[in-house]
Design a binder for these strands. Structure first.
Lengths: 129, 129
DNA sequence: CCTTGACCTTCCCATTATGGGAATCCCTAT
DNA sequence: ATAGGGATTCCCATAATGGGAAGGTCAAGG
């Protein structure tokens, strides 16, 4: 099947499918006319990538996960290790963001939010250190 | 003062100071030899930017906040509106990440994590839809 | 036989913020 | 003079995604 149908059936845009190919994640056949030709197995790979990306795995991780997926002799420990490292990264970023949000929310709560110019948010940003 | 000292005293790298200049956020004088020359007011701006970036405000927001900061007739409502919109963005991203983390954590909890190949994490990524 | 439309191909550009590194210039102290 | 430490500009790279151009391919239909 051509890239358009592969995109429709995998839920991955044609643009991204080509990109994943440059990254070595999918390797479709080529027809004589130069068109990419996707097999069902390629579709499965594309869906795998989509699911992994939906969980925000970076492509580097996706590459490793794909390799493990294909490896019948993999150790589930390897998969789990990648997943848990990613979980840690996600949680750390999420926490950092929520800390920023909380601190800003606190400042905003003390801001009149009217026509007056004085504002604790700007006061905070203005501090010297 | 030259860019090196400005970097030291503001906590912003020389590289980023130059970048902020290309974005129109800081506009130091130039000496005859072409060197940038920072006044105390520029330092204050750089610190302001650093604080705003520490709260993950995108540069576009920083630009607006700087304008309001300089405007003696600003309405604190405008500042607050920018801040709260950013808070909403932060919280939404943080929530999305935590949802992903939670779902992955759940999958990982059901993964043996040993030498066996079967793994619910891969099973999930492999699903058809 | 040729046109039209829907595909496909590759290539370039942009996004956001940050940094690395090269080539070149400037100034000061030896 | 020359060596060292800064400074300047310019290019490149990051991660993932998309926009868009220029041109090739193919099937249907006049």
């Amino acid at each position: 099947m051509n890239i358009g149908e592969a995109a429709r059936r995998s839920g991955v845009s044609a643009k991204m499918i080509r990109h994943y190919e440059t990254q070595g994640l999918v390797t479709p056949q080529r027809l004589v006319n130069g068109y990419r030709d996707y097999a069902e197995a390629d579709l499965a790979v594309l869906r795998f990538i989509r699911h992994a990306r939906a969980l925000a795995f970076p492509l580097e991780d996706v590459r490793k996960l794909l390799a493990l997926w294909r490896d019948r002799n993999r150790a589930s420990a390897d998969v789990r290790q990648i997943a848990l490292a990613h979980v840690a990264a996600l949680e750390s970023k999420a926490q950092a963001m929520q800390a920023m949000a909380a601190s800003l929310r606190h400042l905003a709560a003390h801001c009149h939010g009217d026509a007056r110019p004085d504002c604790p948010i700007l006061d905070e940003l203005e501090k010297s250190p």
